[in-house]
Amino acid sequence: MSIQVFILSKLMIGKTYPYELKKQMAEPIPLDELGGITESKLYYHFDALAKKGLIEPVEIIKEEHRPDKQVFGITAKGREELPKKIYKLFESANDINDIVIGLANIKYVDPEKVVDLLNVRLADYKAHWDRIMNFENTSHRDKKSENLNELLVGYFTTKSDHTIYWLEEAIKQIEQGNL
């Protein structure tokens, strides 16, 4: 879904085509590589958005000795759906990676609603983590099993602390109007 939010948000600014977006994603930080976004994925999502009537082809650029480029624009329905898709990103977020595109496009939504959604996600995440940490396994384990357990508990505790910290930081930045 974040790819579709990315495409729609770019089309809010102006018309474009998949290859152009791929180039934009690679500069100055290779977001395409970090997010595993390939050109074929972009084409797939452009097609899916067009089938839903959220975007439409508006022009074909023909260049000699090159494939035609189909340029897209956002529709009225797409403008209406963009905020809903952004809110869904925040509603379903499990960590900061899931909300990066939403944070980058917060101008299209109500920041107070986003804070409310993130606070719910944060509370759910903390409650889930508390349940996991309070689980007592009373089965007998050998030394290797205990070592593995310690390793995994350490890893997941650090990951959880990291997620909580960055969700709280995102909420704070939104509340302060910095995003």
Results as ranks from 00 to 15, higher is better:
Glu33Ser: 15
Glu136Lys: 15
Asp124Gly: 08
Lys159Ser: 09
Leu11Ala: 07
Lys15Phe: 02
Lys159Trp: 04
Lys52Cys: 01
Lys144Ala: 13
Glu39Asp: 07
Ile99Lys: 11
Asp116Gly: 02
Ala26His: 08
Lys77Arg: 10
Lys69Thr: 01
Phe156Asp: 06
Lys144Cys: 01
Thr158Arg: 13
Lys22Leu: 15
Tyr155Thr: 12
Tyr165Arg: 15
Gly154His: 09
Gln173Ser: 09
Leu42Met: 11
Gly36Val: 09
Lys41Asn: 10
Gln4Ala: 00
Lys41His: 08
Lys172Ser: 13
Ile86Glu: 05
Ala104Val: 01
Lys23Met: 06
Ala26Gln: 12
Val71Asn: 07
Glu175Pro: 03
Ile101Asn: 00
Ser160Pro: 01
Ser40Glu: 07
Glu169Arg: 15
Ala26Gly: 12
Arg131Gly: 03
Asn149His: 11
Glu150Ile: 15
Ala48Met: 12
Gly73Gln: 04
Leu118Thr: 04
Phe46Tyr: 06
Lys126Asn: 03
Lys51Asp: 03
Glu175Asp: 04
Lys22Phe: 13
Leu118Asn: 06
Ile164Ala: 14
Leu122Gly: 10
Glu146Met: 15
Glu59Phe: 11
Glu39Ala: 11
Pro28Arg: 01
Lys88Met: 05
Leu89Ile: 12
Glu169Asn: 13
Gln173Leu: 14
Val5Glu: 01
Ile55Arg: 02
Lys62Tyr: 06
Glu33Gln: 14
Thr138Ile: 09
Ser92Arg: 12
Leu89Asn: 11
Leu11Met: 09
Glu27Cys: 01
Leu8Met: 14
Ile99Thr: 07
Phe72Arg: 02
Glu168Cys: 14
Ser2Leu: 04
Gln4Val: 00
Asn119Asp: 08
Arg131Ala: 08
Ser9Ile: 00
Ser139Thr: 12
Thr38Ser: 14
Leu11Phe: 01
Gly177Asp: 01
Ala50His: 00
Ile99Ala: 05
Lys15Thr: 04
Ile86Gln: 07
Glu81Leu: 13
Lys85Trp: 02
Glu136His: 13
Tyr108Asn: 09
Glu81Asn: 14
Asp130Asn: 14
Val153Lys: 15
Lys41Gly: 07
Ile132Cys: 05
Ile29Thr: 06
Ile60Asn: 02
Trp129Lys: 11
Val100Ala: 10
Glu80Tyr: 08
Ala76Glu: 13
Asp124Trp: 04
Phe6Pro: 00
Gly78Ala: 06
Pro18Val: 05
Val153Cys: 10
His128Arg: 15
Val153Phe: 08
Glu59Ile: 05
Lys126Leu: 12
Met25Asn: 05
Glu136Trp: 06
Gln173Arg: 15
Lys113Glu: 08
Lys15Ile: 04
Val5Asp: 02
Leu179Ala: 11
Tyr125Ser: 14
Pro67Glu: 04
Trp166Tyr: 13
Pro83Trp: 09
Ser2Pro: 00
Met133Leu: 14
Lys15Leu: 02
Ile61Asn: 09
Leu42Val: 09
Glu175Met: 08
Lys10Asp: 00
His65Asn: 14
His128Met: 12
Asn137Cys: 12
Ser9Tyr: 00
Ile13Asp: 06
Leu148Met: 14
Phe72Ser: 04
Leu34Ser: 05
Ile37Asn: 02
Tyr125Gly: 08
